[in-house]
Design a protein around this nucleic acid. Structure first.
Lengths: 377, 377
DNA sequence: TTTTAGCACTCTCCTAATCAAAGTGCTAAA
DNA sequence: TTTAGCACTTTGATTAGGAGAGTGCTAAAA
């Protein structure tokens, strides 16, 4: 990162701050009058010109005030903003809501995306925890009418996946129960990724008389594990984007909306992007444990994505973990001109909260320890 | 319904037709030139004036062409449009998709809303089947970690509801299994509404030794039935509304969006409205069995809802049935100026398709008959 | 050498003015 | 009862002008 002279930095910061608040291009006079730098507009003009030359600022037309470029935003986010741990007013009520009312993972994630939207006044999104990283709590096979059975799969984090399967003949309850028991004994505590591997290997090592069950298990679970690979995205509050003056041009708004609703494009890009961050995180983790909470929050500004539709937007994301493994992402999407300090704080807060709820012993009381000891090395 | 003179009706129809296509106010000259009525613009002007006086037309300013009022739209929809059974191009592929790939109710409904949006080019929505009308297939209790159990509830239509429940102590598997069996024996084939009633009554009549199980059942199912009362709404394709010229005014669009995303208001109104239609349907059913398919499609135009945000929109809805009981609604939401004949056709087609998939023996093969005989009179 | 004051210049935004186009309502003729 | 003719109204697009805001440059001041 280039080391700008201190005064220049100060001016850049002021400009960003002001521009984010007002949305209007900022002129030299405005800066001189409203912030007490002891400098005349002319001096500030010179400074502006330099900053523009270096690529931090631009002006929309020959003689308007300056607005930051993406590079300017980036510098601001990386080195100029003071991280302020904002106090979320309703913190207590929110925690309460989580612990009391929300049991199912779907509900938790849904509420979380809603919450992100409400606290940020922008759009909130949550990726469901990575399916394959989830640790199996139990499998259950139950008869479900003629030639049908219902397979439910419960993970430690409270995620339930189910599937209705066909079989060419009825399997009696007793055998289904036996099947459930065997699988639970063998695989409880394994991650689902391990499960889908093992289910194809382990067969050979088992006693002959169980082999029939394994064939069944292979068939049933194979279907379920295979079909359930995709992860859900919870997205809420896109309507908040409507109020933003940067989208008063209808075309832009429309493009953005269509683009976002086509979840696959943007979010899968984001996921890939974040996965690489996660790797970096891991290696850094030992070194700088102090600033961790905010280090794992990632800000992506406008053209840092390859998508033209996102050119006026920024995304603040955070990883959330389960069993000390990063398993999912959540964050907010808003205009580039957003209040980054607050947003970073909100995302960070929520992400920690989700982690607590998902694994911190608050959600499945007393479970987490036991489960971890179960977990094979 | 007032009986307008035939020529007037013809002109009204032409105007509607033209206006819906172009979105521009229609003038007398346009009508005279493009449709051959053998009438001069002046005559048509006179006719317009009469129609306006009667409330079917209006003009946005002193001297533009005419546009229909809501009353005009209503007359058009009720008596002027010819119902045309449009051929959905991909009909075969769509059926295939339903029967092959979609097993879980959630997936079906989700796909349906997507399909409605795609075929209509507007927004599509689906109400999940009324919870209490669903017929129980089976209940299953499974242990789910320390002091927890997983209750799953499967209905004949393939709807699965589940809940993770706390209990102050562990209940061993054997007892849970016994509980499941008892409940299945007693309640399989009953609707969930009946179930939630019976579960509170039946206790007394049973043998003493089962009473403990009933207490458990009451507690567990009570929680599940109570908490799961709300129905889901699947909504897709709101972005299609963006292209509509009537919403080029950003404020309107924004209002509509916020209003619709606040699902409760509009959709709960719609539900109430439709429920009353359903009652009327029932009594008419015996009489006019012929035109039935389209009779159960309902069009709601702009100000026929009490919501100002909906003033430029229309909704085409259809009831869908299970076991000959209306259980849910689906439809599309678009601008008032929509191609009603096609839309009615699309909604009608999809609603029949959904019925087939949900109950017609295609979804749970061979189940429906047996289940119905199980069903207590 | 750095900062400041002064001034000409540029560009946007707002308003008013003008003009063609579209369509009506009315009157009188067919 | 229908039609032709014509004056009238309103919109929308275009143009022009002027105020406002802010810059860049130059020369003076610190």
């Amino acid at each position: 990162m280039v080391n700008l002279k201190e005064r220049k930095e100060k001016i850049l910061q002021i400009l960003l701050h002001h521009y984010i608040r007002t949305g209007q291009p900022v002129g030299s006079k405005t800066v001189a009058e409203n912030y007490d730098l002891g400098l005349s507009p002319a001096t500030i003009r010179n400074c502006f010109a330099e900053l523009e030359e270096e690529g931090y600022l631009t002006h929309p037309y020959t003689s308007a005030g300056r607005i930051p470029t993406d590079k300017g935003y980036r510098f601001y986010v990386d080195s100029l903003i003071e991280i302020q741990q904002i106090v979320v007013k309703e913190e207590e009520r929110i925690r309460h809501e989580y612990y009391l009312r929300l049991k199912r993972l779907e509900d938790i994630l849904n509420y979380t995306s809603y919450l992100l939207a409400r606290l940020s006044h922008y759009a909130g999104f949550v990726f469901s925890p990575k399916w394959e990283r989830n640790v199996l709590q139990s499998v259950n096979f139950a008869p479900a009418g003629e030639n049908k059975l219902l397979v439910t799969l419960l993970t430690k984090s409270g995620l339930v996946k189910y599937s209705l399967l066909d079989n060419e003949r009825n399997i009696d309850e007793e055998r289904l129960r036996r099947l459930s028991r065997i699988l639970n004994r063998m695989f409880s505590g394994f991650s689902l990724a391990e499960l889908s591997e093992k289910i194809y290997q382990e067969i050979d090592r088992e006693e002959k008389k169980e082999i029939e069950y394994f064939k069944l298990a292979k068939r049933f679970l194979g279907q379920l594990l295979f079909s359930e690979g995709k992860e859900d995205i919870y997205l809420e509050g896109m309507n908040n984007i409507f109020n933003m003056p940067e989208f008063k041009d209808n075309k832009k708004l429309s493009d953005l909306f269509k683009f976002i609703e086509e979840k696959k494009f943007f979010f899968s890009w984001l996921k890939k992007e974040l996965n690489s961050i996660v790797k970096k995180m891991k290696s850094e983790k030992e070194l700088t444990n102090s600033n961790w909470i905010n280090k794992r929050v990632k800000v992506t500004i406008g053209s840092e994505t390859p998508f033209p539709e996102m050119r006026d937007c920024s995304v603040v994301t955070s990883v959330y973990e389960m069993d000390e493994q990063p398993v999912g992402f959540l964050g907010i999407l808003g205009p580039k001109r957003m209040e980054y300090p607050q947003m970073i704080s909100v995302v960070s807060f929520i992400s920690q909260l989700v982690e607590n709820v998902l694994q911190g012993g608050n959600y499945l009381k007393g479970e987490s320890k036991k489960s971890r000891s179960n977990h094979p090395k």
